[in-house]
Measured scan of single mutants.
Amino acid sequence: DLRKKIVDLHKSGSSLGAISKRLKVPRSSVQTIVRKYK
């Protein structure tokens, strides 16, 4: 699940930009998912 991957990467200390590059999703999507998770 993409959300879980993003949250896991964020927990392990990756920046939003790094996560978005790695998973090839827009940075804004990463930000939204991380914000919802918090």
Results as ranks from 00 to 15, higher is better:
1 D>P: 10
1 D>N: 12
1 D>Y: 14
1 D>R: 12
1 D>Q: 11
1 D>E: 11
1 D>T: 12
1 D>I: 11
1 D>W: 15
2 L>A: 04
2 L>W: 10
2 L>P: 02
2 L>N: 04
2 L>Y: 08
2 L>R: 08
2 L>E: 04
2 L>S: 05
2 L>T: 06
2 L>F: 07
3 R>P: 07
3 R>M: 09
3 R>C: 14
3 R>K: 11
3 R>V: 15
3 R>W: 15
3 R>Y: 15
3 R>L: 12
3 R>F: 14
3 R>S: 10
3 R>I: 15
3 R>T: 12
4 K>P: 02
4 K>F: 08
4 K>R: 10
4 K>M: 11
4 K>T: 10
4 K>G: 07
4 K>H: 10
5 K>P: 04
5 K>Q: 13
5 K>D: 05
5 K>W: 14
5 K>A: 12
5 K>G: 04
5 K>I: 13
5 K>H: 06
5 K>S: 09
5 K>L: 13
6 I>Y: 03
6 I>L: 00
6 I>A: 04
6 I>N: 00
6 I>P: 01
6 I>M: 04
6 I>W: 03
6 I>K: 00
6 I>T: 02
6 I>G: 01
6 I>V: 09
7 V>I: 15
7 V>G: 03
7 V>F: 10
7 V>H: 06
7 V>K: 04
7 V>R: 06
7 V>Q: 06
7 V>M: 12
8 D>S: 12
8 D>N: 09
8 D>G: 09
8 D>Y: 13
8 D>L: 13
8 D>P: 02
8 D>E: 14
8 D>V: 09
8 D>R: 10
8 D>I: 11
9 L>H: 03
9 L>S: 03
9 L>P: 01
9 L>D: 01
9 L>M: 15
9 L>A: 05
9 L>K: 01
9 L>V: 01
9 L>I: 01
9 L>T: 01
9 L>G: 01
9 L>E: 04
10 H>D: 04
10 H>I: 12
10 H>W: 15
10 H>N: 01
10 H>Q: 03
10 H>M: 10
10 H>P: 00
10 H>F: 15
10 H>C: 09
11 K>L: 13
11 K>Q: 10
11 K>M: 12
11 K>F: 08
11 K>C: 06
11 K>R: 14
12 S>R: 12
12 S>K: 11
12 S>Y: 07
12 S>D: 07
12 S>A: 14
12 S>E: 09
12 S>F: 08
12 S>P: 00
12 S>I: 07
12 S>M: 12
13 G>S: 02
13 G>N: 04
13 G>Q: 02
13 G>Y: 00
13 G>C: 05
13 G>I: 02
13 G>W: 00
13 G>T: 02
13 G>A: 02
14 S>G: 05
14 S>M: 15
14 S>I: 15
14 S>H: 15
14 S>D: 07
15 S>V: 02
15 S>P: 04
15 S>L: 00
15 S>W: 03
15 S>Y: 02
15 S>R: 03
15 S>I: 00
16 L>V: 14
16 L>N: 08
16 L>R: 02
16 L>P: 08
16 L>E: 05
16 L>K: 05
16 L>I: 15
16 L>A: 07
16 L>W: 05
17 G>Y: 13
17 G>V: 08
17 G>S: 14
17 G>P: 05
17 G>M: 12
17 G>R: 15
17 G>F: 06
17 G>T: 15
18 A>I: 06
18 A>G: 06
18 A>C: 04
18 A>Q: 13
18 A>K: 06
18 A>H: 08
18 A>T: 10
18 A>N: 12
19 I>K: 01
19 I>T: 01
19 I>L: 02
19 I>H: 01
19 I>E: 00
19 I>D: 00
20 S>F: 00
20 S>K: 01
20 S>N: 03
20 S>D: 00
20 S>H: 04
20 S>A: 14
20 S>R: 02
20 S>P: 02
20 S>Y: 00
20 S>V: 07
20 S>T: 05
20 S>Q: 03
21 K>T: 07
21 K>R: 13
21 K>Q: 07
21 K>N: 08
21 K>I: 09
21 K>S: 06
21 K>H: 08
22 R>S: 11
22 R>W: 10
22 R>Q: 15
22 R>D: 08
22 R>M: 15
22 R>Y: 11
22 R>T: 14
22 R>P: 02
22 R>V: 14
22 R>A: 15
23 L>Q: 00
23 L>H: 02
23 L>R: 01
23 L>K: 01
23 L>M: 05
23 L>A: 00
23 L>P: 03
24 K>A: 09
24 K>Q: 11
24 K>D: 09
24 K>L: 07
24 K>P: 00
24 K>E: 07
24 K>W: 05
24 K>V: 05
24 K>G: 11
24 K>M: 08
24 K>I: 04
25 V>T: 04
25 V>L: 11
25 V>Q: 03
25 V>R: 02
25 V>Y: 04
25 V>N: 01
25 V>G: 02
25 V>S: 03
26 P>Q: 07
26 P>G: 06
26 P>I: 05
26 P>M: 05
26 P>L: 06
26 P>T: 08
26 P>H: 10
26 P>R: 09
26 P>V: 04
27 R>I: 14
27 R>S: 05
27 R>G: 03
27 R>N: 04
27 R>F: 14
27 R>K: 13
27 R>L: 15
27 R>D: 01
28 S>A: 11
28 S>D: 07
28 S>L: 08
28 S>G: 09
28 S>K: 14
28 S>T: 08
28 S>E: 09
28 S>R: 13
28 S>P: 06
28 S>M: 06
29 S>V: 15
29 S>N: 08
29 S>G: 06
29 S>W: 15
29 S>A: 14
29 S>Q: 12
29 S>Y: 15
29 S>L: 15
29 S>M: 14
29 S>F: 15
29 S>D: 11
29 S>P: 02
30 V>W: 00
30 V>R: 04
30 V>E: 02
30 V>I: 10
30 V>M: 00
30 V>D: 02
30 V>P: 01
30 V>S: 00
31 Q>G: 08
31 Q>N: 08
31 Q>H: 07
31 Q>M: 08
31 Q>P: 02
31 Q>C: 07
31 Q>V: 12
31 Q>F: 08
31 Q>K: 12
31 Q>S: 12
32 T>M: 14
32 T>S: 13
32 T>G: 10
32 T>R: 15
32 T>V: 12
32 T>N: 13
32 T>D: 12
32 T>Y: 13
32 T>I: 14
33 I>P: 01
33 I>K: 01
33 I>Q: 03
33 I>T: 05
33 I>E: 05
33 I>G: 01
33 I>Y: 03
33 I>V: 13
33 I>D: 00
34 V>G: 02
34 V>F: 02
34 V>R: 03
34 V>T: 03
34 V>D: 02
34 V>I: 11
34 V>S: 02
34 V>W: 06
34 V>E: 01
34 V>H: 03
34 V>Q: 02
35 R>A: 11
35 R>H: 10
35 R>P: 02
35 R>Y: 08
35 R>W: 07
35 R>Q: 11
36 K>W: 14
36 K>P: 02
36 K>Y: 11
36 K>S: 09
36 K>L: 13
36 K>Q: 14
36 K>T: 09
36 K>G: 09
36 K>N: 11
36 K>D: 11
37 Y>S: 06
37 Y>D: 05
37 Y>F: 12
37 Y>T: 05
37 Y>H: 08
37 Y>L: 08
37 Y>Q: 05
37 Y>P: 04
37 Y>R: 04
37 Y>V: 06
37 Y>M: 07
37 Y>G: 04
37 Y>W: 11
38 K>L: 13
38 K>Q: 12
38 K>R: 09
38 K>W: 12
38 K>E: 12
38 K>Y: 14
38 K>M: 14
38 K>A: 13
38 K>I: 13
38 K>D: 08
